[in-house]
Design a protein around this nucleic acid. Structure first.
Lengths: 239, 239
DNA sequence: TGGTATTTGTCCGTATGTATC
DNA sequence: GGATACATACGGACAAATACC
Protein backbone atom coordinates (compact mmCIF):
# COMPACT_ATOMS: atom_id res chain seq x y z
CA UNK A 1 0.00 0.00 0.00
CA UNK A 2 1.54 3.31 -1.03
CA UNK A 3 1.92 5.95 1.63
CA UNK A 4 -0.01 9.13 1.21
CA UNK A 5 1.75 12.35 0.46
CA UNK A 6 1.06 14.07 3.74
CA UNK A 7 2.30 11.07 5.71
CA UNK A 8 5.51 11.06 3.70
CA UNK A 9 6.08 14.73 4.40
CA UNK A 10 5.17 14.26 8.05
CA UNK A 11 7.61 11.40 8.47
CA UNK A 12 10.34 13.22 6.59
CA UNK A 13 10.02 16.31 8.75
CA UNK A 14 9.80 14.19 11.89
CA UNK A 15 12.98 12.40 11.04
CA UNK A 16 14.77 15.64 10.27
CA UNK A 17 13.76 16.98 13.66
CA UNK A 18 14.92 13.83 15.43
CA UNK A 19 18.25 14.09 13.64
CA UNK A 20 18.53 17.76 14.61
CA UNK A 21 18.52 18.93 11.02
CA UNK A 22 15.88 21.25 12.39
CA UNK A 23 17.04 22.15 15.86
CA UNK A 24 15.27 22.81 19.13
CA UNK A 25 13.74 26.30 19.10
CA UNK A 26 14.36 26.75 15.38
CA UNK A 27 11.52 27.63 13.00
CA UNK A 28 10.66 25.18 10.26
CA UNK A 29 10.74 26.60 6.73
CA UNK A 30 7.52 28.47 5.98
CA UNK A 31 4.59 26.58 4.58
CA UNK A 32 5.07 28.16 1.17
CA UNK A 33 8.72 27.13 1.17
CA UNK A 34 7.78 23.57 2.05
CA UNK A 35 5.16 23.64 -0.71
CA UNK A 36 7.94 24.24 -3.23
CA UNK A 37 10.28 21.77 -1.54
CA UNK A 38 7.80 18.89 -1.56
CA UNK A 39 5.96 19.99 -4.68
CA UNK A 40 2.54 19.79 -3.16
CA UNK A 41 -0.32 22.01 -2.06
CA UNK A 42 -0.30 24.09 1.06
CA UNK A 43 -3.10 22.00 2.57
CA UNK A 44 -0.91 18.94 2.39
CA UNK A 45 1.98 20.66 4.12
CA UNK A 46 -0.36 21.97 6.81
CA UNK A 47 -1.65 18.51 7.45
CA UNK A 48 1.84 17.14 7.94
CA UNK A 49 2.68 19.96 10.33
CA UNK A 50 -0.57 19.41 12.21
CA UNK A 51 0.55 15.88 12.95
CA UNK A 52 3.88 17.12 14.26
CA UNK A 53 1.98 19.45 16.56
CA UNK A 54 -0.02 16.51 17.88
CA UNK A 55 3.20 14.67 18.59
CA UNK A 56 4.59 17.59 20.56
CA UNK A 57 7.39 18.05 18.03
CA UNK A 58 6.56 21.61 16.95
CA UNK A 59 4.35 24.43 18.05
CA UNK A 60 2.86 26.86 15.57
CA UNK A 61 2.22 30.54 16.06
CA UNK A 62 0.01 32.64 13.85
CA UNK A 63 2.07 34.95 11.66
CA UNK A 64 5.35 33.54 12.86
CA UNK A 65 5.89 29.91 11.99
CA UNK A 66 6.30 26.42 13.38
CA UNK A 67 8.93 26.21 16.11
CA UNK A 68 10.64 22.96 17.04
CA UNK A 69 10.04 22.00 20.68
CA UNK A 70 11.22 18.41 20.39
CA UNK A 71 13.79 17.45 22.98
CA UNK A 72 15.71 14.23 22.81
CA UNK A 73 14.59 12.48 25.95
CA UNK A 74 16.75 9.63 27.02
CA UNK A 75 14.60 6.89 25.59
CA UNK A 76 13.01 5.23 28.59
CA UNK A 77 13.24 1.52 28.32
CA UNK A 78 9.83 1.03 29.86
CA UNK A 79 6.89 2.60 28.19
CA UNK A 80 3.53 1.11 28.87
CA UNK A 81 0.23 2.71 28.24
CA UNK A 82 0.70 3.43 24.56
CA UNK A 83 -0.99 1.58 21.74
CA UNK A 84 1.77 -0.97 21.70
CA UNK A 85 1.00 -4.53 22.70
CA UNK A 86 2.95 -6.33 25.38
CA UNK A 87 4.83 -8.45 22.87
CA UNK A 88 5.71 -5.47 20.65
CA UNK A 89 6.97 -3.64 23.69
CA UNK A 90 9.08 -6.54 24.82
CA UNK A 91 10.58 -7.07 21.39
CA UNK A 92 11.32 -3.38 20.85
CA UNK A 93 13.23 -3.29 24.10
CA UNK A 94 14.83 -6.67 23.52
CA UNK A 95 13.39 -7.97 26.75
CA UNK A 96 12.81 -11.60 27.51
CA UNK A 97 9.06 -11.97 27.84
CA UNK A 98 6.60 -14.64 28.72
CA UNK A 99 2.86 -14.82 29.27
CA UNK A 100 1.22 -17.38 31.51
CA UNK A 101 -2.49 -18.04 31.33
CA UNK A 102 -4.06 -18.40 34.75
CA UNK A 103 -7.71 -18.51 33.75
CA UNK A 104 -9.25 -19.30 30.37
CA UNK A 105 -13.00 -19.68 30.27
CA UNK A 106 -16.07 -18.88 28.23
CA UNK A 107 -18.87 -16.87 29.78
CA UNK A 108 -22.06 -15.08 28.95
CA UNK A 109 -22.17 -11.44 30.04
CA UNK A 110 -24.55 -10.98 32.93
CA UNK A 111 -25.63 -7.91 34.84
CA UNK A 112 -22.53 -7.92 37.05
CA UNK A 113 -20.06 -8.28 34.20
CA UNK A 114 -21.89 -5.69 32.15
CA UNK A 115 -21.67 -3.26 35.04
CA UNK A 116 -17.90 -3.09 35.04
CA UNK A 117 -17.10 -3.91 31.42
CA UNK A 118 -19.90 -2.13 29.52
CA UNK A 119 -20.14 -5.21 27.31
CA UNK A 120 -23.81 -5.87 26.38
CA UNK A 121 -25.71 -8.36 28.51
CA UNK A 122 -26.14 -11.74 26.84
CA UNK A 123 -23.12 -11.77 24.51
CA UNK A 124 -20.65 -14.60 24.83
CA UNK A 125 -17.11 -13.77 25.80
CA UNK A 126 -13.77 -15.30 26.54
CA UNK A 127 -12.60 -14.43 30.00
CA UNK A 128 -8.84 -14.68 30.32
CA UNK A 129 -6.52 -13.98 33.15
CA UNK A 130 -2.83 -13.74 32.37
CA UNK A 131 0.44 -12.92 34.09
CA UNK A 132 3.04 -11.11 31.99
CA UNK A 133 6.71 -11.62 32.71
CA UNK A 134 9.62 -9.43 31.71
CA UNK A 135 13.15 -10.71 32.23
CA UNK A 136 11.66 -13.42 34.37
CA UNK A 137 9.72 -11.08 36.66
CA UNK A 138 5.92 -11.06 36.80
CA UNK A 139 5.05 -7.41 36.20
CA UNK A 140 1.48 -7.30 34.86
CA UNK A 141 -1.78 -9.08 35.56
CA UNK A 142 -4.27 -8.88 32.71
CA UNK A 143 -7.98 -9.57 33.03
CA UNK A 144 -9.44 -9.72 29.52
CA UNK A 145 -12.92 -10.07 28.16
CA UNK A 146 -13.15 -10.66 24.40
CA UNK A 147 -16.41 -10.89 22.47
CA UNK A 148 -16.56 -14.35 20.93
CA UNK A 149 -18.49 -13.11 17.89
CA UNK A 150 -15.53 -10.88 16.98
CA UNK A 151 -12.59 -12.81 18.36
CA UNK A 152 -13.40 -16.31 17.17
CA UNK A 153 -11.45 -19.42 18.05
CA UNK A 154 -9.19 -18.24 20.85
CA UNK A 155 -7.09 -20.88 22.56
CA UNK A 156 -4.75 -20.95 25.50
CA UNK A 157 -1.81 -21.21 23.12
CA UNK A 158 -2.84 -18.04 21.33
CA UNK A 159 -3.35 -16.26 24.63
CA UNK A 160 0.18 -17.18 25.69
CA UNK A 161 1.63 -15.84 22.47
CA UNK A 162 -0.21 -12.76 21.19
CA UNK A 163 -3.93 -12.41 20.76
CA UNK A 164 -3.48 -9.31 18.63
CA UNK A 165 -1.16 -11.02 16.20
CA UNK A 166 -3.76 -13.75 15.86
CA UNK A 167 -6.49 -11.20 15.34
CA UNK A 168 -4.60 -9.46 12.57
CA UNK A 169 -3.34 -12.59 10.84
CA UNK A 170 -6.29 -14.93 11.07
CA UNK A 171 -9.33 -12.75 11.53
CA UNK A 172 -8.31 -9.52 9.82
CA UNK A 173 -9.37 -7.62 12.92
CA UNK A 174 -7.59 -4.88 14.80
CA UNK A 175 -7.95 -2.29 17.52
CA UNK A 176 -8.91 1.07 16.08
CA UNK A 177 -9.94 3.10 19.11
CA UNK A 178 -8.75 2.51 22.67
CA UNK A 179 -10.25 4.37 25.61
CA UNK A 180 -8.28 4.08 28.78
CA UNK A 181 -8.54 5.05 32.39
CA UNK A 182 -5.64 4.91 34.79
CA UNK A 183 -5.80 4.82 38.57
CA UNK A 184 -3.62 3.52 41.36
CA UNK A 185 -5.13 1.01 43.75
CA UNK A 186 -4.06 -0.91 46.80
CA UNK A 187 -2.92 -4.40 45.98
CA UNK A 188 -5.28 -7.36 46.18
CA UNK A 189 -4.41 -10.83 47.38
CA UNK A 190 -4.12 -11.93 43.77
CA UNK A 191 -1.65 -9.12 43.02
CA UNK A 192 0.48 -10.20 45.94
CA UNK A 193 0.27 -13.82 44.91
CA UNK A 194 1.22 -13.34 41.28
CA UNK A 195 3.27 -10.13 40.95
CA UNK A 196 6.73 -9.06 42.01
CA UNK A 197 5.83 -5.89 43.86
CA UNK A 198 9.22 -4.85 45.24
CA UNK A 199 7.73 -3.43 48.39
CA UNK A 200 4.94 -1.44 46.77
CA UNK A 201 1.51 -1.86 48.30
CA UNK A 202 -0.19 -0.51 45.17
CA UNK A 203 -0.56 -1.27 41.48
CA UNK A 204 -1.33 0.88 38.45
CA UNK A 205 -4.69 -0.18 37.07
CA UNK A 206 -5.30 0.55 33.40
CA UNK A 207 -8.84 -0.14 32.30
CA UNK A 208 -9.33 -0.27 28.52
CA UNK A 209 -12.30 -0.36 26.21
CA UNK A 210 -11.28 -1.34 22.71
CA UNK A 211 -13.19 -0.86 19.46
CA UNK A 212 -12.60 -2.54 16.11
CA UNK A 213 -12.99 -0.97 12.66
CA UNK A 214 -16.74 -1.60 12.72
CA UNK A 215 -17.13 0.36 15.93
CA UNK A 216 -17.82 -2.75 17.98
CA UNK A 217 -16.39 -2.71 21.49
CA UNK A 218 -14.97 -6.19 21.39
CA UNK A 219 -12.56 -6.10 24.32
CA UNK A 220 -12.52 -4.97 27.91
CA UNK A 221 -9.26 -5.29 29.75
CA UNK A 222 -8.02 -4.46 33.19
CA UNK A 223 -4.22 -4.44 33.38
CA UNK A 224 -2.65 -4.29 36.79
CA UNK A 225 0.95 -3.11 36.54
CA UNK A 226 3.66 -3.24 39.15
CA UNK A 227 4.43 0.44 39.74
CA UNK A 228 8.16 0.15 39.19
CA UNK A 229 7.70 -0.80 35.55
CA UNK A 230 5.09 1.72 34.55
CA UNK A 231 5.73 4.92 32.61
CA UNK A 232 3.21 6.94 30.69
CA UNK A 233 3.84 9.90 28.40
CA UNK A 234 1.39 12.46 27.19
CA UNK A 235 1.37 15.82 25.45
CA UNK A 236 -1.34 18.35 24.87
CA UNK A 237 -1.70 21.75 23.24
CA UNK A 238 -4.37 24.28 23.79
CA UNK A 239 -4.88 26.76 21.01
CA UNK B 1 -13.82 36.96 19.63
CA UNK B 2 -16.20 35.10 17.32
CA UNK B 3 -15.90 31.35 17.20
CA UNK B 4 -14.83 29.79 13.99
CA UNK B 5 -17.26 27.84 11.93
CA UNK B 6 -15.67 24.44 12.39
CA UNK B 7 -15.57 24.87 16.16
CA UNK B 8 -19.24 25.76 16.19
CA UNK B 9 -20.10 22.67 14.20
CA UNK B 10 -17.81 20.54 16.35
CA UNK B 11 -19.40 21.78 19.56
CA UNK B 12 -22.89 21.40 18.19
CA UNK B 13 -22.30 17.80 17.14
CA UNK B 14 -20.57 17.04 20.41
CA UNK B 15 -23.48 18.33 22.39
CA UNK B 16 -25.95 16.36 20.30
CA UNK B 17 -23.95 13.20 20.97
CA UNK B 18 -23.83 13.87 24.70
CA UNK B 19 -27.58 14.41 24.71
CA UNK B 20 -28.08 11.17 22.77
CA UNK B 21 -29.62 12.93 19.81
CA UNK B 22 -27.08 10.83 17.96
CA UNK B 23 -26.97 7.53 19.81
CA UNK B 24 -24.22 5.07 20.59
CA UNK B 25 -23.41 2.99 17.50
CA UNK B 26 -25.47 5.22 15.22
CA UNK B 27 -23.91 6.81 12.12
CA UNK B 28 -23.77 10.58 11.93
CA UNK B 29 -25.42 12.11 8.88
CA UNK B 30 -23.11 11.94 5.87
CA UNK B 31 -20.66 14.75 5.28
CA UNK B 32 -22.67 16.00 2.34
CA UNK B 33 -25.81 16.07 4.45
CA UNK B 34 -24.01 18.04 7.14
CA UNK B 35 -22.69 20.42 4.49
CA UNK B 36 -26.26 21.31 3.62
CA UNK B 37 -27.35 21.39 7.25
CA UNK B 38 -24.62 23.78 8.38
CA UNK B 39 -24.31 25.58 5.04
CA UNK B 40 -20.57 25.22 4.79
CA UNK B 41 -17.94 23.42 2.78
CA UNK B 42 -17.11 19.77 3.14
CA UNK B 43 -13.65 20.54 4.49
CA UNK B 44 -15.20 22.44 7.36
CA UNK B 45 -17.46 19.54 8.26
CA UNK B 46 -14.55 17.14 8.03
CA UNK B 47 -12.54 19.24 10.40
CA UNK B 48 -15.31 19.24 12.99
CA UNK B 49 -15.64 15.47 12.70
CA UNK B 50 -11.88 15.08 12.99
CA UNK B 51 -12.02 16.75 16.38
CA UNK B 52 -14.76 14.40 17.51
CA UNK B 53 -12.55 11.50 16.48
CA UNK B 54 -9.73 12.91 18.61
CA UNK B 55 -12.10 13.10 21.57
CA UNK B 56 -13.08 9.46 21.15
CA UNK B 57 -16.67 10.46 20.38
CA UNK B 58 -16.91 8.95 16.92
CA UNK B 59 -14.94 6.60 14.73
CA UNK B 60 -14.94 6.95 10.95
CA UNK B 61 -14.76 4.21 8.38
CA UNK B 62 -13.94 4.74 4.74
CA UNK B 63 -17.01 4.36 2.56
CA UNK B 64 -19.33 3.94 5.51
CA UNK B 65 -19.52 6.96 7.78
CA UNK B 66 -18.82 8.26 11.27
CA UNK B 67 -20.14 6.00 14.01
CA UNK B 68 -20.82 7.26 17.53
CA UNK B 69 -18.75 5.42 20.14
CA UNK B 70 -19.34 7.87 22.97
CA UNK B 71 -20.53 6.26 26.16
CA UNK B 72 -21.81 8.22 29.07
CA UNK B 73 -19.30 7.40 31.78
CA UNK B 74 -20.37 8.23 35.25
CA UNK B 75 -18.55 11.53 35.52
CA UNK B 76 -15.63 10.88 37.80
CA UNK B 77 -15.31 13.55 40.38
CA UNK B 78 -11.54 13.35 40.37
CA UNK B 79 -9.74 13.98 37.16
CA UNK B 80 -6.19 15.10 37.41
CA UNK B 81 -3.67 15.04 34.68
CA UNK B 82 -5.61 17.04 32.12
CA UNK B 83 -4.82 20.57 31.04
CA UNK B 84 -6.93 21.93 33.85
CA UNK B 85 -5.23 23.80 36.66
CA UNK B 86 -5.70 22.82 40.28
CA UNK B 87 -8.02 25.74 40.97
CA UNK B 88 -10.13 25.12 37.86
CA UNK B 89 -10.45 21.49 38.87
CA UNK B 90 -11.47 22.35 42.40
CA UNK B 91 -14.04 24.89 41.25
CA UNK B 92 -15.52 22.61 38.61
CA UNK B 93 -16.07 19.93 41.21
CA UNK B 94 -17.20 22.40 43.84
CA UNK B 95 -14.44 21.26 46.15
CA UNK B 96 -13.02 23.34 48.96
CA UNK B 97 -9.42 23.96 48.02
CA UNK B 98 -6.40 25.60 49.52
CA UNK B 99 -2.74 25.93 48.57
CA UNK B 100 0.04 26.36 51.10
CA UNK B 101 3.47 27.55 50.08
CA UNK B 102 6.25 25.64 51.79
CA UNK B 103 9.23 27.01 49.89
CA UNK B 104 9.51 30.18 47.82
CA UNK B 105 12.96 31.13 46.63
CA UNK B 106 14.86 32.53 43.68
CA UNK B 107 17.66 30.52 42.13
CA UNK B 108 19.92 30.39 39.14
CA UNK B 109 19.82 27.14 37.20
CA UNK B 110 23.01 25.15 37.68
CA UNK B 111 24.15 21.86 36.24
CA UNK B 112 22.18 19.81 38.76
CA UNK B 113 18.90 21.67 38.25
CA UNK B 114 19.36 21.62 34.50
CA UNK B 115 19.83 17.90 34.60
CA UNK B 116 16.37 17.15 35.91
CA UNK B 117 14.42 20.17 34.64
CA UNK B 118 15.95 20.73 31.17
CA UNK B 119 15.89 24.46 31.94
CA UNK B 120 18.97 26.17 30.46
CA UNK B 121 21.93 26.68 32.77
CA UNK B 122 22.29 30.25 33.99
CA UNK B 123 18.66 31.42 33.75
CA UNK B 124 17.01 32.74 36.86
CA UNK B 125 14.01 30.91 38.22
CA UNK B 126 11.51 30.89 41.01
CA UNK B 127 11.59 27.64 42.92
CA UNK B 128 8.33 27.00 44.70
CA UNK B 129 7.13 24.12 46.77
CA UNK B 130 3.43 23.92 47.54
CA UNK B 131 0.96 21.61 49.20
CA UNK B 132 -2.51 21.43 47.64
CA UNK B 133 -5.51 20.68 49.82
CA UNK B 134 -8.90 19.39 48.75
CA UNK B 135 -11.70 19.34 51.29
CA UNK B 136 -9.10 19.94 53.93
CA UNK B 137 -6.86 17.03 52.94
CA UNK B 138 -3.34 17.53 51.58
CA UNK B 139 -3.39 15.58 48.31
CA UNK B 140 -0.66 17.04 46.09
CA UNK B 141 2.89 18.30 46.54
CA UNK B 142 4.07 20.57 43.75
CA UNK B 143 7.68 21.41 43.05
CA UNK B 144 7.72 24.25 40.50
CA UNK B 145 10.45 26.02 38.61
CA UNK B 146 9.35 29.12 36.69
CA UNK B 147 11.64 31.17 34.47
CA UNK B 148 11.78 34.68 35.93
CA UNK B 149 12.19 36.28 32.50
CA UNK B 150 8.77 34.93 31.50
CA UNK B 151 6.94 34.79 34.81
CA UNK B 152 7.82 38.17 36.24
CA UNK B 153 6.91 39.38 39.71
CA UNK B 154 5.69 36.21 41.42
CA UNK B 155 4.87 36.47 45.10
CA UNK B 156 3.85 34.04 47.80
CA UNK B 157 0.32 35.43 47.67
CA UNK B 158 0.05 34.70 43.97
CA UNK B 159 1.45 31.21 44.49
CA UNK B 160 -1.22 30.52 47.11
CA UNK B 161 -3.98 31.65 44.78
CA UNK B 162 -3.30 30.73 41.14
CA UNK B 163 -0.13 31.41 39.23
CA UNK B 164 -1.86 30.73 35.95
CA UNK B 165 -4.59 33.23 36.57
CA UNK B 166 -1.90 35.78 37.33
CA UNK B 167 -0.03 34.84 34.17
CA UNK B 168 -3.09 35.30 32.00
CA UNK B 169 -4.36 38.46 33.66
CA UNK B 170 -1.18 40.40 34.33
CA UNK B 171 1.39 39.07 31.91
CA UNK B 172 -0.72 37.89 28.99
CA UNK B 173 1.06 34.56 29.11
CA UNK B 174 -0.31 31.05 29.01
CA UNK B 175 0.58 27.41 28.66
CA UNK B 176 0.33 26.26 25.06
CA UNK B 177 2.06 22.89 25.06
CA UNK B 178 2.42 20.58 28.03
CA UNK B 179 4.58 17.46 27.90
CA UNK B 180 4.03 15.07 30.75
CA UNK B 181 5.46 11.90 32.12
CA UNK B 182 3.74 9.83 34.77
CA UNK B 183 5.32 7.25 37.03
CA UNK B 184 4.61 5.81 40.44
CA UNK B 185 7.30 6.11 43.07
CA UNK B 186 7.79 5.11 46.67
CA UNK B 187 7.04 7.91 49.07
CA UNK B 188 9.75 10.19 50.38
CA UNK B 189 9.99 11.59 53.88
CA UNK B 190 8.57 14.86 52.60
CA UNK B 191 5.58 13.04 51.09
CA UNK B 192 4.91 11.38 54.41
CA UNK B 193 5.31 14.61 56.27
CA UNK B 194 2.98 16.69 54.12
CA UNK B 195 0.48 14.38 52.42
CA UNK B 196 -2.48 12.32 53.59
CA UNK B 197 -1.49 9.00 52.14
CA UNK B 198 -4.23 6.75 53.52
CA UNK B 199 -1.94 3.79 53.84
CA UNK B 200 -0.32 4.02 50.41
CA UNK B 201 3.45 3.80 50.34
CA UNK B 202 3.60 5.34 46.88
CA UNK B 203 2.67 8.54 45.05
CA UNK B 204 1.87 9.31 41.42
CA UNK B 205 4.59 11.57 40.09
CA UNK B 206 3.65 13.76 37.13
CA UNK B 207 6.59 15.60 35.63
CA UNK B 208 5.63 18.43 33.28
CA UNK B 209 7.48 20.62 30.82
CA UNK B 210 5.41 23.62 29.82
CA UNK B 211 5.84 25.90 26.82
CA UNK B 212 4.33 29.33 26.24
CA UNK B 213 3.11 30.76 22.93
CA UNK B 214 6.65 31.77 21.97
CA UNK B 215 7.87 28.22 22.34
CA UNK B 216 9.81 29.00 25.51
CA UNK B 217 9.84 26.24 28.10
CA UNK B 218 9.09 28.48 31.05
CA UNK B 219 7.98 25.94 33.64
CA UNK B 220 9.11 22.62 35.01
CA UNK B 221 6.88 21.01 37.57
CA UNK B 222 6.89 17.79 39.50
CA UNK B 223 3.50 17.03 41.04
CA UNK B 224 3.31 14.26 43.59
CA UNK B 225 -0.27 13.03 43.95
CA UNK B 226 -1.73 10.84 46.63
CA UNK B 227 -2.83 7.76 44.67
CA UNK B 228 -6.39 7.75 45.93
CA UNK B 229 -7.16 11.04 44.24
CA UNK B 230 -5.59 10.45 40.89
CA UNK B 231 -7.44 9.48 37.73
CA UNK B 232 -6.22 9.87 34.19
CA UNK B 233 -8.17 9.34 30.97
CA UNK B 234 -6.81 8.87 27.52
CA UNK B 235 -8.02 7.80 24.10
CA UNK B 236 -6.18 6.93 20.93
CA UNK B 237 -7.04 5.80 17.43
CA UNK B 238 -4.78 4.13 14.97
CA UNK B 239 -5.74 4.52 11.36
C1' DT C 1 -22.74 -11.82 -9.20
C1' DG C 2 -22.22 -7.33 -10.87
C1' DG C 3 -23.04 -2.53 -11.63
C1' DT C 4 -24.28 1.91 -9.61
C1' DA C 5 -24.77 5.16 -6.05
C1' DT C 6 -23.12 6.69 -1.70
C1' DT C 7 -19.58 7.96 1.46
C1' DT C 8 -15.16 8.86 3.20
C1' DG C 9 -10.07 9.91 2.06
C1' DT C 10 -6.65 12.58 -0.45
C1' DC C 11 -5.12 16.46 -2.97
C1' DC C 12 -5.28 20.66 -5.40
C1' DG C 13 -6.06 25.77 -6.15
C1' DT C 14 -7.85 30.05 -4.59
C1' DA C 15 -9.52 33.72 -1.69
C1' DT C 16 -9.74 36.20 2.58
C1' DG C 17 -8.58 37.26 7.32
C1' DT C 18 -5.28 38.18 10.91
C1' DA C 19 -0.99 38.12 13.46
C1' DT C 20 3.85 38.95 13.13
C1' DC C 21 7.97 41.01 11.40
C1' DG D 1 2.40 50.70 5.92
C1' DG D 2 4.04 46.73 3.46
C1' DA D 3 5.68 42.03 3.29
C1' DT D 4 5.53 37.59 5.28
C1' DA D 5 3.27 33.76 7.47
C1' DC D 6 -0.23 31.15 9.53
C1' DA D 7 -5.60 30.29 9.99
C1' DT D 8 -10.01 29.68 8.03
C1' DA D 9 -13.07 28.64 4.42
C1' DC D 10 -14.72 27.46 -0.15
C1' DG D 11 -15.02 24.61 -4.24
C1' DG D 12 -13.70 21.00 -7.24
C1' DA D 13 -11.61 16.58 -8.76
C1' DC D 14 -10.55 11.91 -8.25
C1' DA D 15 -9.64 7.55 -5.63
C1' DA D 16 -11.08 3.92 -2.64
C1' DA D 17 -14.18 1.46 0.38
C1' DT D 18 -18.74 0.44 1.24
C1' DA D 19 -23.75 -0.11 0.55
C1' DC D 20 -27.54 -1.13 -2.29
C1' DC D 21 -30.17 -3.04 -5.80
Amino acid sequence: MPKTKYVEIYEDLKQKIEKNMYEYQQLLPSENTLVKEYECSRNTVRRAIGNLVNDGYVQTKHGQGARVIYQDFKQNEYMFGETETFKEFALRNLKKHETKVVVFEELTVDEAIHEHTLLPIGVEVYHIQRVRHLEGNPVIMDYNYFRKDVVKGLTVDIAEDSIYEYLARELNQRAVTAKRKMVVERTTEADEKYLKLDGFNSVVVVTSHIFNADGVMFEHTQSRHTPGNFVFFDQTQRK
